[in-house]
Nucleic acid binder design. Sequence first.
DNA 1: TATGGGACTTGCTTGGAGTTTC
DNA 2: GAAACTCCAAGCAAGTCCCATA
Length: 892
Amino acid sequence: MTVEAFAKTNLMEDIDDDDDVPLVFKRSSTASKQSQSNSSSQKQDGRSGRQVSDVRSPNGQSSSAHKVKIASASKASPAVSPLTNPKASPFTSPKASPSSVRTSPAPNSRPSSSAGNQAKNVNQQSISAPKESKQSVEPKSEPNDESEDSEDDKPLSARLPSGLSKSSSIHANKMVGTSTSVRKARPPKKEDSDDEVPLASRFQMKSNAGASTSKFSNSEEVKPKIRQNGLPSTTVLSKRPPGEVKSAAQASVKKPKLSDTSTPVSTKQASLKTEKKAEEEEDDDDDVPISLRMKKPGASACKVSSGKKTIKVVSPSMKKTKKKLKKTKYSKSSRVQPSSGDGQKWTTLEHSGVIFPPPYNPHGVKMLYKGKPVDLTPEQEEVATMYAVMLDTDYVSKQQFKENFMNDWRKILGKNHVIQNLEGCDFTPIYEWHQREKEKKKQMSTEEKKALREEKLKQEEKYMWAIVDGVKEKVGNFRVEPPGLFRGRGEHPKMGKLKRRIRPNDITINIGKGATIPECPIPGQRWKEVRHDNTVTWLAFWNDPINPKEFKYVFLAASSSLKGQSDKEKYEKARRLKDYIEGIRSAYTKDFTSKDPVKRQIAVATYLIDKLALRAGNEKDDDEADTVGCCTLKVENVEPVPPNILKFDFLGKDSIRYQNEVAVYEPVFKAIQQFRSGKKDGDDLFDKLDTSKLNAHLKELMPGLTAKVFRTYNASFTLEQQVKFINGRQEGEISIGLENHLFSVGTRQVAIICNHQRSVSKSHSVQISRLNEKIDELKALLEEFKVDLARAKKGKPPVKGADGKMKRNLTPEALQKKIDQTNAKIENIERQIDTKEELKTVALGTSKINYLDPRITVAWCKRHEVPIEKMFNKSLLAKFAWAMDVEPSFTF
DNA sequence: TATGGGACTTGCTTGGAGTTTC
DNA sequence: GAAACTCCAAGCAAGTCCCATA
């Protein structure tokens, strides 16, 4: 079926060599103009090609952006951060030294001494003797209540209000306060302990059993000896046996020593020396692939050497790994699991390759050129159709998109084709045909739709699964991307270019040595290459037709054990940061005023990443959208406003605008001013810094630490704080109904911190109008009831209704009840409107999938006997299967 | 030390299925 | 029964970060 397509369709084979298309997007020095214009557009309207910046809340503020006001002291805030209260020491535990906040220097007092001294005071003992250029930090000695309660341990988010009130929700930073009085509003301190109480007897995997275990046994057709993974928990059969991939929760919670992350925990009381030793070990550990580190020591059924013998790896990457691992302990250590070798991700791997999109089926609808129908070959028509179906998107209004499209299409049309420019083209007939087709599909009966689905499933079934070390695992994206027009985000210089059709000879397959190589589905063609590289997890890849330097991979699904291990490791690392954070903050605070400009920049960058959850900000090529992260911030992106406000305005990942105004600690403010001095708008703010330098520095502070770990830490820590706060407020009243509250508050807070945005749905305003209409109707009704009530009290009958009909005679009590009910309805709808407005630009899902440690949620569910299914949907349950065994007392 | 290849993770949009409302 | 709404998962773009090599 799909297969013959390739024999027939040569479409767009030579399109990818067209990088000579003029690139408008330039960066940095050569691009300062571009940059300026770009930034000026940012400043004016934040337009990024997305709706985001156009969205405004009713009060006229851009609700899509991370807009922050430096709030007045009157706004109550349960916590104060150094950002929010620059007068206060950023790292002084209010509990340990409550007066320090009040007595700390005023904003204009000398900053250096305060910064340095405070850092010293607080963390003197936990920092190793600073070397000239390197500082190492040891985990805080005891993660006890004292220190956990400290503001210092909390990310900015955690210091923001709980979000329980409406005003504290969407623009969390509005709550930023400078008053010390707000401190009183902090969550009760001892709430932590409440969470710590193990209620094991009660939940014994109550939800888990239902979700993942008990039903497995009933599950369907698994071939003999093949265990199945990656299914939603309600259908999953079996997990890997304990000897293979240990449940992550087991590994982390029950047997922490097996994990590389256990070191900081076990050495919390240790001396610096011990710690250093531990770090060395961890350094080594860090060189070892996650999968290897996850493996349980001592399980020696299949050691490294045997792994090497059984599988001859041909990829260069494997060679590299081997070379590298010779230096590591693990290459010869017994800390290797069965089926894992040095860098080895699997021992046996079977799968069926990839499925190709169906061939193009010409529709024969003629587009118009200068008003006349045009004959097109199927290849030409296919590309025309790609454009036509996008007529109702914003892309076709973008010059770059149109230019790129025309350049590529022209190559298929040929020099002498009647179509010479896009202006003369009218794609409407094709667009309308497409709409009709969509409508037809929509109008199909349920049975027809079902039949189609089943047919598709039948065709795809064999591609959906891989067998990894004997376990049936779901494959993620087994479908090869179909040809189309590239939909780059923001002002991507390549938007509109043709993504040509991918054929078997573009694709490299990775499969176990002894496994059957998937048959190439197109007669006469073959795979580009077949590898047997067990150091990687991909099953196939091809070069991205838009950016041939880059690759498109086929991986296992998120629910697979391999992904689960990696996920768990990510959260463990973030969790470990909690033990180091105090020292890290002291270290960078000290460096705010360092004489070494590199150190100063690293310190300030780390501060921003820590406090604002900024991304690292790798350098980008000219042929990518001009977005920035921390290290690539431009002078124009950060504006210091005396006495201590920094105004951020830039396009981040996916060209999403980040707008924020924060009060910062004075040395930071001064440092930023200094970094900007003598530079132009488009110059790099951190000119002595890039992500590798920054990450190299971070690794000196904590093994394995990189910039992105702070985001995970911030997010998960924030959620946990929210959970604790809710628990504290609702002591004894936790009910299943609260889970929505928990998540709407917790995840919303995190989404705001991480700047996860979405475009406003097309129907948003209609929905709001409808709700407002309902309120109006209810209010009218309310007035009638009030009149009737007054009359009833005087013994008079009710007035006629709006429809002219007589109403029932009701008692005053009954009328009062109706009034109360109507009022409640109105309030309810008003709440709905508020929530819709607040969340219209906030994307909640992203943090739930990527940043919030699922064990926080699982543990909370266990503590409160809430079924986990209430919190996670089917795919999240499958993705987080590794987290289900966590102890109820788990804390992040 | 800079650069670029390579292998992932992160994140927004979209389309469709299921559910609710009228 | 249709329209409206919500939720979910697929799709794929766009990041991060590691490592080898020049």
